[in-house]
Each structure stands twice: as C-alpha cells, then as structure tokens.
C-alpha cells in the first residue's frame, strides 16, 4: 500500500522532527553532573523516527510515481471513516462523563448503548450484559479492593 506508507511515513517523520526541533530542546532539561545529558536517549528515538519514517515515505512515493498512482490522495469513503471513528468518539465522551460521574453509576448505560449501536436488539441480552459487569465492578471495588466506588 504505497499511498498509506507515504502518508504514515510522513506522519512518523513529522512527529520525529517535532520532537527533535521543539520538544527536546524546550522540555528535556539539563543535568550538569551526568555524562549522558537527559536529551540524548529521546533524541536517539526521535532520529530513528525521522530516518525510518523518511525512508518509508520515500519508498511509498517512488512506488506511487512508478505505478502512476498519482494523485496522492484517494477519495475517502466517509461512511467507512465514520464507522471506524464512532467508537473512539463514544469512548471519549464516556471518559468526559467519568470526570463528573463514577463509572459504576453509568457503566450499564455505557455498555448498553454501545450494544444497541453495534446492532444488538434482544432486550434480555442488553440488560444482562450491561448490568452483570457493573455489579462485578461494584463488588470488586467496594468489597474486595476496598477502594470505594470507582
């Protein structure tokens, strides 16, 4: 898949460059006593990303040019993207919720909602699968780990 290689390699190399040029100089700090400055090891990692990402992107590019694959972008299938993205959005919203309400109190709705979205329609299945894990978590956290309700 030269096209995805090209873009993913570019992203990796880009992150490596960002790390090398901005993160490490500004945030790695200094250590006057160490013979190994704190920025050394992160720089090695960042260089690996820049070099390997660059090679992956270059190879992808060459292959695309050879095969006459241009344009470099393909039509996105929005349906497919949306299908891949909604679980992330769903969980992100759940995490946002968890900063107000404990997961034990709304966990059943979290599981149940996703079950419905994934196409489960049998009510007893939804009820069972959403309530049992939450009850388990309640017992685990309150009675066994004694951390209180999480």
């Amino acid at each position: 898949m030269p096209r995805s290689d090209f873009w993913s390699g570019l992203a990796v190399a880009g992150f490596g460059l960002l790390a090398l040029l901005w993160m490490i100089p500004n945030y790695a700090g200094t250590n006057p006593f160490a013979r190994m400055p704190p920025g050394l090891v992160p720089s090695i990692g960042a260089w690996a990303m820049v070099i390997c990402g660059g090679i992956i992107a270059a190879k992808g590019l060459i292959q695309m040019l050879r095969a006459g694959h241009a344009p470099f972008t393909a039509d996105l299938h929005w349906g497919a993207v949306a299908w891949a993205a909604w679980p992330f959005a769903y969980v992100a919203v759940a995490i946002w919720f968890m900063s107000f309400i404990k997961i034990t109190w709304f966990g059943a709705f979290l599981i149940g909602g996703m079950l419905v979205l994934l196409g489960e329609r049998r009510w007893w299945m939804i009820l069972g699968c959403s309530v049992v894990p939450v009850v388990l978590l309640y017992i685990l956290s309150v009675y066994m780990m004694r951390t209180g309700v999480v």
Binding site: I95, M98, I103, I111, L115, L118, S130, L137
Partner: peptide
Amino acid sequence: IPIVIFFCLA
C-alpha cells in the same frame, strides 16, 4: 467489545 471496553476503563 462493549464489555471489554468497560473493563479497560474500569
């Protein structure tokens, strides 16, 4: 899937 996601968060 939903149950495993729940346990990962929990």
